[in-house]
Design a binder for these strands. Structure first.
Lengths: 235, 235
DNA sequence: ACCTTGATTTAGGCTAGCCTAATAATTTCA
DNA sequence: TGAAATTATTAGGCTAGCCTAAATCAAGGT
């Protein structure tokens, strides 16, 4: 017995992770940016994999020291795991920003491309892109970009659905994953940086009416949930 | 029996190939751009894999209709295989050109990065890069870039080692794979576009002396083999 | 014509990741 | 509290790709 004795033989974290592993870490980070445990089934749902597949991978990742797993309770990233996850988040968001800025991509199509590229770019390339962009702090959807050390500042945002009638706020962030949704929001002019005023809300989870750039739009509740705003009052 | 009856059940070529398959096709293309058969062991050597691994993959690829294999004779790409290979060659060379032009890469470091990115980029991204570059016909090492339909024009080149003393020629192409070699060549000013005159050749495969940009350099025979030139006389 | 040599293929085994079906643990609710 | 529902894990199996060791084929020299 000559190891540092935490778990029975700890296989060091390999210097390069597989695509799968990177995707798991990103998913777990997304499910619990604050560090609360994420459930197996949530991970499975997000990655569109079966629950047993996730169970198996979770076991391997915890043996690698990338996360901690309490059976039937959930998983939490270790520091090493969170670092690796944030590295992927940084890559993803910088790639999106780069493709939009320099290669004419739209905010609706850029996610799929970044999803593959993030596993293939080298760290130096990521930093070159960051420099070419002038070290941006957010991607085209308003998602904050962690710095190279993994520090990230998540600005306080609330769903548009949570605004009160009469309130005015600025759109900060929009969930990036559904291209069609992004195209629809863009067609309405509901993009980050735009000021919106809530004009009406129907009861029982009904639609809301917002005014932006002088136009009024009726928005369904699930859409109003993925558009994040910052009230003029905050910070 | 309801198939078109060439081989006993032909599994259609999948729309996306794996990284491994893409690498095999590229390797086979490189070993036989003219279509002569490539040997198992040459493929194994180029990809740094064991011969049995290559044997197994070759079997699968021939079942997929990407190549034809005559046991103990060699493999030849089919039209579909060659098309897939040229698609990878186009990607690789355009990525190299893009990274050098827009992201400050040097010709010595760009190969490794392109080697990974070529498997991850989408066709539209490749075409956007090509457009941003103004549809170049060659990459930073002078290697010609196939067009989007897979047509490629390989300019007639001969190794510098094959020149006669007193001849003058233009450097056209340099093997891209060894970063250190590229750095050395660049330090001597021996890059594509430069005119060189052969001043001396030592017998028995000895070094050659070339003059370029007014300077003389002594070059070992294996280096003189990977620098390709076009004589002023040729086309 | 035979035998050695080198290239190639077959045999058998391994890991990473995925799956479905079956089992087990936890939570919920009557 | 105890059954039902939910959630997670184990069992067992699959493919892609890689490996080493063993067998086999193709040639070339005597």
């Amino acid at each position: 017995m000559n190891a540092t004795a935490t778990t029975p033989s700890l296989p060091a974290i390999p210097d390069t992770l597989t695509r799968s592993v990177e995707d798991y870490l990103k998913a777990i980070y997304r499910l619990s940016p604050e560090g609360q445990p994420a459930s197996t089934s949530d991970i499975a749902h997000l990655l569109e994999l079966s629950a047993p597949s996730v169970s198996g991978m979770v076991k391997r990742l915890s043996e690698l020291g990338l996360l901690e797993h309490v059976p039937y309770k959930g998983v939490q990233l270790t520091d090493a795991g969170r670092r690796a996850a944030l590295r992927m988040v940084r890559r993803h968001r910088l790639i999106e920003a780069y493709l939009v800025q320099f290669l004419g991509y739209g905010w609706d199509t850029v996610h799929a491309e970044a999803e593959r590229l993030e596993h293939a770019v080298s760290d130096p390339l990521v930093e070159r892109m960051a420099a070419a962009l002038g070290h941006p702090v957010a991607d085209p959807h308003g998602d904050p970009i962690p710095d190279a050390d993994g520090a990230i500042h998540e600005p306080a945002c609330t769903p548009l659905a949570g605004m009160s009638v009469g309130d005015t706020a600025e759109i900060r962030r929009v969930d990036e994953r559904d291209a069609e949704r992004l195209r629809y929001l863009a067609s309405l002019g509901l993009v980050p940086g735009v000021a919106v005023t809530l004009r009406d809300r129907q009861p029982f989870g009904g639609p809301v009416t917002v005014e932006a750039s002088g136009e009024r739009h009726v928005i369904g509740p699930e859409l109003a949930q993925v558009v994040l705003v910052r009230s003029e009052g905050d910070r």
